[in-house]
């Protein structure tokens, strides 16, 4: 019995560098969401809730991108889907107009594409 395994390190590298940018992106989107809420004249509690939500979303995207990027060689399909979800989540945080999330979105997307299209090799089952 044999199993397919990826050969490219690109999903892993994109996942790590994307996370590197998404971490400050998460903090930024939280702060930006709070700023936008304050400008809109919302109550302090509502502003804090929105800030925590966007920061949480950004952190989940970073975590997902990092872990799924590491799966790039072991399980390319799982890595591709995970990186795609991370890209979508960082795309949602882009609503707060922050640069870091945009870079992370591009990197996660590239990582996802590379995870799907990379050359695969047959390896013996453990």
């Amino acid at each position: 019995m044999s199993k397919k395994r990826g050969t490219s390190s690109v999903p892993m590298i994109m996942g790590i560098i994307g996370t590197v940018f998404q971490l400050p992106g998460a903090v930024c989107s939280g702060a930006c969401a709070a700023g936008l809420g304050s400008v809109a004249g919302e109550s302090q509690k509502a502003v804090n809730d929105v800030a925590d939500f966007y920061m949480g979303l950004g952190l989940v995207a970073a975590l997902l991108g990092f872990i799924c990027g590491l799966f790039g060689k072991r399980n390319p399909v799982f890595a591709g889907i995970g990186l795609l979800i991370a890209a979508i989540l960082s795309g949602i945080t882009l609503i707060t107009f922050n640069f870091f999330s945009m870079v992370a979105l591009i990197l996660f997307l590239l990582g996802s594409i590379f995870a799907f299209v990379q050359k695969k090799e047959e390896v013996p089952e453990q």
């Binding site: 199993k3 395994r5 892993m12 590491l70 799966f71 072991r74 390896v123 453990q126």
Partner: peptide, 9 residues
Amino acid sequence: PQRKDFLII
């Protein structure tokens, strides 16, 4: 090699 990759995760 799969186990070595798994250790990275």
